[in-house]
Design a protein around this nucleic acid. Sequence first.
DNA 1: GTTTTTGAAGAAATCGGTTTCAAAATGGGG
DNA 2: CCCCATTTTGAAACCGATTTCTTCAAAAAC
Lengths: 354, 354
Amino acid sequence: MNAPRVNESKAITIYDIAKEAGVSPSTVSRVLTNNANVRPEKKERVQMIIDKYNFKPNALARGLADTKSKVIGLLVADVRNPYYAALYVACETAAREAGYSLLSSNSLSEMEEEELLIGKLQEQKVDAIIQAGGSVDDLSTNLEYSEFINQIMATTPVIVTGKLDGTQCHMVQIDHMQVMDLLMNHLLELNHRRIALVGGAMHVSSTFMKVQRYKQILQKNMIKLDPELLMVEGGYSTETGYELMNEMLDRGTRPSAVIAINDYSAAGIVRSIVEHGYRIPQDISVVSQDNTFLTQIVAPNLTSVDYDYDAYGKKLIETAIAVIEGKKVGMLRTVTPKLVIRDSSGPAPEQKDI
Amino acid sequence: MNAPRVNESKAITIYDIAKEAGVSPSTVSRVLTNNANVRPEKKERVQMIIDKYNFKPNALARGLADTKSKVIGLLVADVRNPYYAALYVACETAAREAGYSLLSSNSLSEMEEEELLIGKLQEQKVDAIIQAGGSVDDLSTNLEYSEFINQIMATTPVIVTGKLDGTQCHMVQIDHMQVMDLLMNHLLELNHRRIALVGGAMHVSSTFMKVQRYKQILQKNMIKLDPELLMVEGGYSTETGYELMNEMLDRGTRPSAVIAINDYSAAGIVRSIVEHGYRIPQDISVVSQDNTFLTQIVAPNLTSVDYDYDAYGKKLIETAIAVIEGKKVGMLRTVTPKLVIRDSSGPAPEQKDI
DNA sequence: GTTTTTGAAGAAATCGGTTTCAAAATGGGG
DNA sequence: CCCCATTTTGAAACCGATTTCTTCAAAAAC
């Protein structure tokens, strides 16, 4: 009769395994890390005991000994935003597949908060920090921020989404120019000429680049820029989209198509348009960016630009691991956007006003 | 002229601080942990040097030494679901305020995956594991799962959302009965008698409880249960909501109000209703659960049951910390729901059929 | 058959903290 | 001013791995 199984409060260690296998702790460690020769029969014996107890080496001790925690810190602006949620899941999946864990935080767009959180991540000895969104994207504080990142980089490698000048940190960036190209080409092919840009803020670098590109494309197509169609002066929320669109329509400005800065604000834009009695896409087309699940919640389903989040996350994690392992990898990698056409965009209506 | 600042590759340690302060490492540690007496003037001197270098103790070493990592593992079903995203952020905030970090994973509803992830968390020596959603809620595998949790509990305390019999693990649970009470009372007060229940799956415990309660309330109000109004046989997605509602309306069943299992599916339900030419709430009221931001994206804005995510997350973290610190705390804590009335619910239309 | 090379495995140092233990310093009372 | 109780403090052990350094044995070379 076996002794009753009792919760031995002490966790099992490499020494216990060693004793039971009749070998030294070093040997057990060698079996564990698998980067030194151990005689096959011994290796097997040790492995059996490891399996028997389902022994898992203490990651803290391991991290302390070899100064690699196998944890990557991930700072996202806010996972409640579907865009970041998608990116976060993609990163986690990629990290897991590479044998890393993720220590993540929501910075909630306070730069002070960010500093605190990064400090926390450093305490935890994460091997690298990925910063997705937040201060990185803010043109107005960019210089100051680069300084800050450089300081962090002295200790921990940092990878950011977006582009950050004046640092040695690696970047994975969506090709914002191409995002705008995709949207504009789609609309121009549908004969739209009065294309509005709604939502976003100019001090955010991605938005800034998109507006630039928007203007370029108009020019190339001999379309005169109507400043009334450019309403990039709010935020990225549903509320903002709703208000900006209301303002435009109430003022009498009538676009044939609207480019929303993201799906989130598109929801507000769509509502405003519908409430003003226009049909989508018959009267006004709406196209959006991010291709989150919101595209399928809003009626009609939104045409939106997708970033292939899995690939995006994978690139971030790959870059982080490459840097950790000291391998060479491009400083700036790009995520290629793709247009997903749904029901919210259609041919421009016959022109009746100017 | 100062020497140029160079990246000293070696991180600064407690010993460096000790040397510069002219004290022993033990003393520095005492200042750091603040749980032993240190002569004030010495304490100040050490603290100054700590501040000077902005020294942060290595969390790995610390965790190894006192077998407390100050990290809590959080397993959520899927942060891309706004409900879990809200809960996740709430937990993170609460954890941070209590001086803990969060190591989180998305279990993505594979029980195998869950086991793997929990194993990972244990390796990382998290002080406790919070499991939010996933297998916990599945009645069909509940027994097997309890066994599994008990095994984990031998090493790491586990806190789950929902109710899990046969384990010693702490639970924080939404009062599902009350959720249904709130929704039904609201609708009954608005004179609704033909109330449909759409979405969800009976093997999920929360849904099961809600259906039970739904029947009880009908009975108490002398309303005969119409099985055609009960469409709890799909999932929790927008797609499911859309399909189930289509099925009901196409079949000719006409409710005066619909209770959606969550906001996510409500979006599909709303779309189906609108596409069938009914107005919300004039013809059919829709009420929902979770009170995520989706309530404000769907038009009309959804009446929904809120859980006060901040309080919810805080209860989870508080419970976890209490367990970690060996303090007594109730095995089952409850989250009280609250109804948020918006535009999707209104008085029942004058009865014309039966 | 002896010497050299290579491979396997243990002892011990190390990572960077916390904590126990014992010694030293301080302080209060007689 | 001395003695005893109480703080303070430092030395050393410890947490649980990895890794370097040795030693020893076996295989290869001569």
